[in-house]
Every structure is written in structure tokens, then in C-alpha cells.
Amino acid sequence: MARASDGRRVTSADVAREAGVSRATVSYVLNDAPHQKIPDATRQRVWEAAARLGYSPSAAARSLRTGRSDIVLGLLPDWPIEHVLGRLIQQLTNAFAEHGLTFVVHSSAHPARPLREIWKAMTPAAVLALQEFAELEAEAMRAAGIEVVMAMHGSIRGVSRPPLVSEQPIGALQARHLVATRPHRRLGYAYPDLPGLDNLAQPRLDGVRKACAELGLPEPEVRTVPLDADSAAEAVRAWRAADPPVTGVCAFNDDVALALLAGLDRLGLRAPQDLAVIGVDDITHAALAQPPLTTVNRDTAAIARGMARRVVDALEGRETPADAVQEELRVSARESA
């Protein structure tokens, strides 16, 4: 906290004296008040005075003036915050900043504080939920004037809404790419060994199933694949021993796909000759794998902009569309499939 020379906290009155303007002018300039015709030179003088004194407007005072904070609270499930999720958080931070909002995340990973304590302490303008939570909790937030936007499956004021981001097209694209690159009699799906990822894994699997039906292939054989080579090798053995044998696998993400490549190596086998593998996310290690991993590349920047737009629309009282945020999916084709 900035202090004046006599030890007091620096106030807007100090900035006004330093800049030779009124306190009202300081307030208008630092809070970017609309419809105020203040000369650019005066604005510059105020900003320079505030910078010299180390003064910034009080967030609490700004909340009282505008009737809301500038915080959007992001609720994260108990997911590993790495790779794509980390990138999405950064891009959401940037996307909200373009609207003058601050994005703050809270993970539900144990032993996190209860959600009710978090939002009551922060009083955010809105909550962007990447996880499901009790409707009573959502109603309590709304009663406190907080907008609630469900990014995953959930309901808004009791009306069920689809997720903001659809995962089904990812699985469908994986299956179609495998079949387009080489003949396959049956596909497998490598499910993650983490229950918290079901909201993502299940719709991706549904996409694979739908594509297989459209392509005239039998139901994909689903196996849970932990992130270690021995367990992945067991899954590979089972797929190859199936009737008909599985010749291509759609993995939940690149981490699971890399485990499969390690499992193949453990058995003295190789992709794609013995089993084609395709992942999701195009993480850094995908291109460095042996063989380099074919994967689905997501447009997380478009996802972040779309989510931020839905939150801003809700804050400004505009009707939000029920359809999913649009993103462009593409395959980074390499040697594993």
C-alpha cells in the first residue's frame, strides 16, 4: 500500500494536489468515467501524479460505485492444471481483461475451502463454472447478484443447458482420421484413469461411437489406460487379442496416447504398424514422441473468447445463445496413425 511522506495512505486528494486538479477530475480519469470531456494533457498529468505517488483506485470503492466488482470467479474441477487447462486459464485471463474484468480461479481439489466461503469472501461479478455444483448454491449466488454461467453440463435457473464447449466433435474427428489414413476393422478408445475427467471423456467417447456407426464399424472397445507403460501394455495386448482385433485407438488426450506408445514399446511393437494411436491437445511432447504422435489440435483461444463473451453478455443483461462456443478443430498428422 502506497504511503505519503508523513506515513499516511496515499489518497485521491494527494493525487489531486500533485496534479493541480480537483478530486472529481482524479476520480473521472483514474476510473475512466464515460462522457467526461477531460483534455488529454490533464489526463496524462493525473496518471503521472498517481504513478509518482504509487496510488491506485480502491477496488472496494470501485465496487461500491459501480454496484459490482470486476472479478469473474472461475470454478475448476479436480483436474490437473497443466498443458491445455493451463493455457486455457491464461487465455481466459486475457479475454476477460479485454472487457475490463479480472479472472480468478478456484480449484475444488481437496482440501480446498468450501465454495460458499469463496464466493461470499470475493463477491465476484460473475462465476464461470467448469464443474457442476448444487443448484441451491447457484441460486444463492444469483440472490447475491452474482451471474452464474455454466461451462459444463448444468442448468440456468432450473432450465437444463448444454455445455458451452462440445467434446463430441473431438472423438468423431479422431475416429474419422484413423479410418481415412488406413483400413481399420475396429477401433478402441483409451479412457483416462481419473474419474474427475468423465465430463470430458464420456462425450468424446460418444463422438467416437457415433463416427464408428456412421462408418459401418462395430462399437469401439473401451479400456481405461493409466499413465504408466505396464498398464498401457496390458491394454494393448487386450485390444490386439479382441475379435475382431482393434487396429486403431482414439486416446482421451495426448498423455494417455503417450502412455500407449510407451506400452507398445514395452511389447516390442510400434505405431501405426501394430496399433495406430491418435491423441488430443497437441502438447509439446507429442511431436517429440517416438514415433511422433498424431493428435487433434484445439483452438483454446477461440474457446476462451467465446466463454468470456457469454459471461459479459450475462453481466450486461443480453440473452445468451444456447449453442456451443465454436472452435476450429484440426488434426496434426504425424507418424503414429
Rank of each mutant, 00 (worst) to 15 (best):
P39W: 02
P272H: 01
P34W: 00
W119E: 09
L76N: 11
N253P: 04
A289L: 12
P226T: 03
L73Q: 11
G7V: 07
S58I: 09
E82V: 00
A211Q: 02
V72N: 09
P39D: 10
R330A: 14
T181K: 11
G263P: 07
R334F: 04
N94D: 15
A259C: 10
A97L: 12
T284G: 10
A60D: 13
E139K: 12
A276Y: 00
A308W: 00
L205W: 00
T224K: 06
L115P: 11
D228F: 07
I38H: 05
G279M: 06
R240K: 06
T93I: 05
D32Y: 07
I118V: 15
A337K: 05
P244W: 03
I156G: 14
E221N: 08
D193G: 08
A301I: 01
I146A: 11
D265V: 08
L53F: 09
L85F: 13
R185G: 15
I283D: 03
P183A: 12
S336L: 07
L30Q: 01
G306E: 02
A314D: 09
I118L: 15
V249E: 06
I170G: 03
E147I: 12
A259F: 13
P321H: 03
I71T: 15
A109C: 04
A259W: 05
A276S: 08
L92P: 04
A97W: 11
N94Y: 13
L329A: 03
R237Q: 12
I156D: 15
L194C: 03
A143V: 09
R8K: 13
H184M: 12
K210Y: 02
A59I: 07
L200N: 10
T102D: 14
K37Q: 14
A289D: 08
H153N: 13
L53Y: 06
Q290V: 14
Q131S: 14
S5E: 13
L164S: 14
H184F: 06
V148F: 11
A232W: 06
L164Y: 09
F133K: 03
P195R: 00
D193Y: 08
A301Q: 11
D255A: 12
A251I: 05
L194M: 10
I278S: 04
I170P: 05
Y189S: 11
V149G: 05
V29L: 02
P183S: 14
Q168E: 15
P203H: 03
V105K: 00
D228W: 02
M152K: 00
R8P: 10
I156T: 15
A24G: 15
A233T: 07
I283Q: 05
M150F: 13
A49H: 04
A121Q: 14
E98M: 00
A259I: 08
W47G: 05
